[in-house]
Design a protein around this nucleic acid. Structure first.
Length: 817
RNA sequence: GCGGAUGUGGUGAAAUUGGUAUACACGCCAGACUUAGGAUCUGGUGCCGCAAGGCGUGGAGGUUCAAGUCCUCUCAUCCGCACCA
């Protein structure tokens, strides 16, 4: 029979569909595995990155199914989001129609790749049912004080006409369309993720075993915790009167209290309240005000280029020395970190140093390296060291003095130990249509009120005009009109929708809902406790911060709301590498994409899957290679053709190992080595490439012998090992020869590893010089004798000073002369 | 600047605790069969050298009987963060 991929693959895809082959059991006493790939946005078609992502999770899912585990391997679509609206603007489609057409198309692609998803749990986050439960959670979070509305300076993307979260601003530009971000003062909803800063940071420790270090570090940096001293700088009398006593002081934060005696100026962010006050009350000249305004309007990228400052003509009093210190505005001081003001120590901070050089401010060194002279004539000395010119703290090292100085500030009640975070609250409102509406109502009398839960979902209207100008919901003639949920008066619905990251922050919990639960609840606690945490979460590293941080946050929030009782959602995280072609990421704009559909049509899904898992370990980048794809296809053909050597059987053939010849024994050994390797790979290493190589070696060894039983046993095992990778081919072979009985856990047979003869390497001074054949019984002396004989010519005229025999490995003779 | 990773044949990559470096594949070369095909099968293939032999895991040192693997320094590339006080 000839290998016909499309015939075989269609046959088995139908079989799996008709038999509900991959539906998890609702029997919660079974051992479970929850295998999840990050769900896709329904962009239209699958790309190779998707194929890689799901090939990995599908292999894991199929393996654990074979091992008898109850496996949940679901698929859904992260289906809200801007591209649907952009497509609507571009070609007049409706976001909903566009989205669901894409979902249908991509689902077909998924199933034509043979992925073993639970079909009964398919969903899309734009489904009204999903919105309904999400809105309910949002209300819970608002009641808990974890969601709030506030006016603030926000990141506004003028192209997408919407607000972006800090996390969605990349190099000062929109993460989606690269347009430079503008600042806008607006009302916006925020999740209080900062309330969980410490927990999000501390619990990273729990994840050390299962998550890549890189991701943990990225999250750690993003949260950006730093400890230090916060204290007030008091204005001197002249300054007080300039400010009309409106401000007595301002707050600064430092992580280097040990440098405090080196403070020679202080700096405020241009957005600081004191600066704003001085502008509003014309306490500065028009020229200076113009300069400050210009500074404020400079984009954050440009602001990083050159340090600029303006002296304010104010002075504060140094809290320890009592000397006056000038107050400046500096463009490098950020309003949204700490208090928006800093003490400047040019001698021991690079930024302060540059600034002081530029504006000719004093540079007072107070720290020096141990046993060295202080020198800050060329650069700042930013290391820790020993204090001098620091009053009573002279001679102490940085660490010790930091502790002492903070203690002194606290005793004098002029400052306190303080912790700062880079992490900001998560702004979630978007002024767009294709998202989940925020279920709130603005009532003239009652203010901001929540919709009643029984009225959920607050669904999107279908009849909208999407033209890229303003919020379509805001512009809709009637949608926002509603009754206040408290007083019943005419009121106005919130027209902002939620960031799509809200949906992806809990979808993995939704998948736990059984088909019976689906309509009734988001999930039940019983289902969650059974299925969570996700045993294997597979996805791209690009989600290392945003999605994974938000999902962790939601898990903790849901825990505190009583919906679940664990702290972290994802036990193991596998971050797959990118798929490259010609050395760069596949992308439409570069024109170097390979269409999965075309590969499936030409070679079949199994070939695509085999190539993708064989070409590189999953965490590494994968370079697409057409001829290697061809090679994978050839292997499958060979694997299929040589199955004709099998004798049909319903049970694994029994073989008397001792009666076999050398080639037959080797073949069996290679087969079981491959089996051992596969166990390791699926349990610990995930290097599918080495597992596949092992199977290829076993195939090569089988081909060098002709014992029908050895062939049959070999295929019994190999088809089982390969089923997670090339399922269609393996099910076909298995059905034809083994009545599908071999697709289950296989036991290793140890007898095949007992060696009749062992090859030892013989080395002289560590250099390999030959090989000898011995048996397991050969004594050490005999081995040495054989070895010396083998390499006699190298030993002539030399003295052996050491003899090392490493059992089953090698002999090393150390010689001299 | 800070953090994380990676560096092995012509290419993708193996090498579990230090123990015969380059498994498996792609490519290339040769041969067989042939309906002369980009099919299939068989064999060869780290580099230099006619050979003996030498050299080889980014580079330089070190530990060891033995180092891709451990230690120190260094170079290159990629990724993330970045004026975070």
């Amino acid at each position: 029979m000839q290998y016909n991929s499309s015939e075989i693959e269609k046959k088995w895809q139908n079989y799996w569909k008709e038999n509900d082959s991959f539906e998890p059991s609702e029997d919660f006493t079974l051992d479970k595995k929850y295998i999840l790939s990050m769900f896709p946005f329904p962009s239209g078609r699958l790309h190779m990155g998707h194929v890689r992502n799901y090939s990995i999770s599908d292999a894991l899912a199929r393996y654990h199914r074979q091992q008898g585990k109850n496996v949940l391997h679901p698929i859904g679509f992260d289906s809200f989001g801007m591209p649907a609206e952009n497509a609507a603007i571009k070609n007049g489609s409706h976001p909903k129609g566009w989205t669901y057409d894409n979902i249908d198309y991509m689902k077909n692609e998924f199933y034509s790749l043979g992925f073993s998803f639970s079909r009964k749990r398919e969903m899309a986050t734009s489904d009204e049912l999903y919105t309904k439960f999400e809105q309910s959670f949002i209300i819970d979070m608002y009641e808990k004080g974890l969601l709030y509305r506030e006016k603030g300076m926000l990141n506004w993307c003028p192209n997408d006409q919407t607000v972006l979260a800090n996390e969605q601003v990349v190099d000062g530009c929109c993460w989606r369309c690269d347009t430079p971000i503008e600042k806008k003062d607006m009302n916006q909803y925020y999740f209080k993720i900062t309330q969980y800063s410490d927990e999000l940071l501390d619990d990273l420790k729990e994840l050390e075993k299962g998550w890549p270090k890189q991701v943990l570090t990225m999250q750690e940096n993003w949260i950006g915790k730093s400890n230090g001293l916060a204290f007030d700088l008091l204005f001197d009398d002249t300054s007080l009167s300039i400010l009309d006593n409106k401000f007595k002081s301002f707050d600064v934060f430092t992580t280097r209290p040990d440098t405090i005696y080196g403070v020679s100026y202080t700096a405020l962010a241009p957005e600081h309240a004191i600066v704003t006050y001085m502008i509003e009350n014309k306490l500065l000249s028009d020229a200076v005000i113009a300069e400050i305004t210009k500074m404020k309007n400079t984009s954050s990228i440009d602001r990083q280029k050159v340090k600029e400052g303006i002296a304010l003509g104010l002075n504060v009093v140094h809290p320890l020395t009592g000397k006056t210190v000038p107050v400046w505005i500096a463009n490098f001081v950020l309003m949204d970190y700490g208090s928006g003001a800093v003490m400047a120590v040019p001698a021991h901070d690079d930024r302060d140093y540059d600034f002081a050089k530029k504006y000719d401010l004093p540079i007072n060194a107070v720290i020096k390296a141990k046993d060295a002279e202080s020198d800050v004539s060329k650069t700042a000395f930013t290391d820790a060291g020993v204090l001098f010119n620091s009053g009573e703290f002279d001679g102490l090292n940085s660490k010790k003095s930091q502790y002492n100085i903070i203690k002194m500030f606290e005793e004098k009640k002029i400052g306190a130990k303080t912790t700062n975070y880079k992490l900001k609250d998560w702004g979630v409102s978007r002024q767009r249509y294709w998202g989940a509406p925020i279920p709130f109502i603005h009532c003239e009398d009652c203010g901001l009120v929540m919709e009643k839960k029984e009225n959920l979902p607050i669904a999107l209207p279908d009849d909208v005009e999407i033209n890229g100008e303003g919020s379509p919901l805001e512009n809709h003639p009637t949608w926002k009109n509603c009754k206040c949920s408290q007083c019943g008066k005419e009121a106005v619905r919130e027209t902002d929708t939620m960031d799509t990251f809200v949906q992806s922050s809990w979808y993995f919990l939704r998948f736990c809902a059984s088909p019976e639960t689906l309509e009734k609840a988001a999930f039940t606690k019983e289902e969650i406790s059974y299925w969570m945490g996700v045993d294997h979460y597979v996805g791209g590293i690009e989600h290392a911060i945003l999605h994974l941080l938000y999902a962790r946050f939601f898990t903790k929030v849901f825990r505190d709301l009583g919906y679940l009782d664990f702290d972290e959602p994802f036990d193991k995280l596998l971050t797959q590498g990118m798929v490259l072609k010609d050395g760069t990421k596949m992308s439409k704009s570069k024109g170097n994409t390979v269409d999965p559909d075309a590969i499936i049509e030409k070679y079949g899904a199994d070939t695509a899957r085999l190539f993708i898992l064989f070409a590189a370990p999953p965490t590494q980048e994968l370079e697409w290679n057409d001829s290697a794809v061809e090679g994978s296809h050839k292997f499958i053909k060979r694997f299929f053709d040589r199955a004709s050597n099998i004798v049909k059987t319903d049970t694994k053939p029994k073989i008397d190992h001792n009666s076999l010849n050398k080639e037959e024994k080797l073949a069996r050994k290679k087969v079981y080595e491959a089996l051992k390797r596969s166990e390791e790979v699926f349990k610990e290493r995930y290097t599918f490439n080495t597992m596949i190589a092992g199977v290829m070696e076993a195939m090569n060894a089988l081909n060098l012998q002709s014992n029908a039983d050895v062939w049959s046993e070999g295929y019994w095992i190999l088809a089982s090992i390969m089923e997670p990778v090339i399922p269609h081919t393996c099910w076909d072979i298995s059905m034809e020869y083994f009545s599908l009985n071999n697709l289950s856990k296989q036991e290793v047979v140890e007898e095949v590893f007992v060696e009749d003869s062992i090859t030892l390497g013989v080395a002289i001074n560590g250099k390999n010089r030959g090989e000898i054949e011995v048996t397991p019984q050969t004594s050490k002396d005999e081995i040495l004798a054989l070895a010396k004989e083998k390499v006699a010519k190298y030993l002539e005229g030399k003295t052996i000073i050491k003899e090392i025999v490493v059992p089953k490995k090698l002999v090393n003779l150390v010689i001299k002369g």
